[in-house]
Amino acid sequence: MSAVLSGLGVIWAVIALGWILGATGIVGPEAKDPLNRLVYTLGLPALVFLTLARANIAELLGTPLAVAGISASLAALIFWLLGRFVLRLSPACTLIGTMGSSLANAAYLGVPLAQYILGSAAHVAPVILFQMGILTPALFIAADVLAVGHRPSVRSVGAMIGKNPLLWSAIVGGAVSVTGITLPQLVIAPIEILGGAAVPCILIAFGLSFVGEHPAAFRLAALAISVATSVKLIVQPVLGYLCARFLFGASGLDLFAMTLMSGLPTAQNAYLVAFRVGQGDYLARGTVLATTVLIIPSFVLIAAIVGVGT
Rank of each mutant, 00 (worst) to 15 (best):
residue 165 P to T: 11
residue 127 V to Y: 00
residue 224 A to K: 01
residue 102 S to W: 00
residue 110 G to M: 05
residue 88 R to W: 09
residue 60 L to A: 08
residue 236 Q to C: 02
residue 56 N to E: 15
residue 112 P to A: 10
residue 64 P to R: 11
residue 74 L to T: 02
residue 263 G to A: 04
residue 8 L to D: 03
residue 286 G to V: 10
residue 308 V to R: 12
residue 71 S to T: 02
residue 53 A to W: 05
residue 171 I to K: 02
residue 78 I to L: 15
residue 193 I to H: 12
residue 123 H to S: 14
residue 202 I to S: 10
residue 73 S to E: 03
residue 28 G to R: 15
residue 243 C to L: 06
residue 304 A to P: 02
residue 131 Q to F: 02
residue 102 S to E: 04
residue 97 G to A: 13
residue 31 A to K: 04
residue 245 R to L: 03
residue 209 S to N: 10
residue 221 A to C: 05
residue 207 G to P: 12
residue 213 E to W: 12
residue 52 L to V: 13
residue 278 G to W: 11
residue 220 L to H: 14
residue 118 L to Q: 06
residue 292 T to G: 02
residue 103 L to G: 00
residue 154 V to N: 08
residue 95 L to I: 09
residue 155 R to F: 08
residue 81 L to A: 11
residue 309 G to F: 09
residue 310 T to K: 08
residue 142 A to Y: 06
residue 225 I to T: 10
residue 14 V to R: 09
residue 180 G to R: 02
residue 204 I to D: 08
residue 127 V to F: 01
residue 49 F to K: 09
residue 57 I to N: 08
residue 61 L to S: 10
residue 80 W to P: 06
residue 142 A to L: 14
residue 116 Y to D: 15
residue 227 V to E: 13
residue 222 A to H: 13
residue 91 P to Y: 09
residue 282 Y to C: 10
residue 84 R to K: 15
residue 109 L to S: 03
residue 43 G to M: 07
residue 308 V to G: 10
residue 19 W to K: 01
residue 154 V to Y: 10
residue 201 C to H: 08
residue 118 L to C: 06
residue 214 H to S: 15
residue 186 L to M: 11
residue 88 R to E: 15
residue 287 T to W: 03
residue 275 F to H: 07
residue 1 M to K: 07
residue 241 Y to I: 04
residue 233 L to V: 00
residue 169 S to W: 10
residue 260 L to A: 04
residue 287 T to Q: 09
residue 43 G to K: 01
residue 150 H to C: 12
residue 231 V to R: 06
residue 262 S to L: 00
residue 178 V to I: 14
residue 147 A to C: 12
residue 229 T to H: 03
residue 61 L to D: 08
residue 149 G to E: 11
residue 80 W to F: 15
residue 271 Y to F: 13
residue 76 A to Y: 02
residue 166 L to A: 06
residue 47 L to P: 05
residue 153 S to R: 05
residue 255 L to I: 01
residue 125 A to T: 01
residue 150 H to K: 14
residue 142 A to Q: 10
residue 5 L to P: 07
residue 116 Y to Q: 13
residue 24 T to W: 15
residue 162 G to Y: 03
residue 63 T to F: 06
residue 208 L to V: 03
residue 214 H to E: 15
residue 260 L to S: 00
residue 159 A to R: 10
residue 205 A to M: 01
residue 3 A to W: 00
residue 99 M to N: 11
residue 249 G to C: 04
residue 269 N to V: 06
residue 185 Q to K: 08
residue 201 C to M: 15
residue 41 T to P: 07
residue 55 A to F: 15
residue 40 Y to E: 11
residue 245 R to C: 05
residue 288 V to T: 01
residue 209 S to E: 13
residue 171 I to F: 09
residue 130 F to G: 03
residue 82 L to N: 05
residue 62 G to K: 13
residue 86 V to Y: 10
residue 40 Y to L: 14
residue 148 V to G: 13
residue 24 T to E: 15
residue 141 I to E: 07
residue 288 V to A: 01
residue 177 S to Q: 07
residue 119 G to F: 03
residue 210 F to N: 08
residue 271 Y to L: 08
residue 104 A to Y: 01
residue 257 A to N: 02
residue 220 L to M: 14
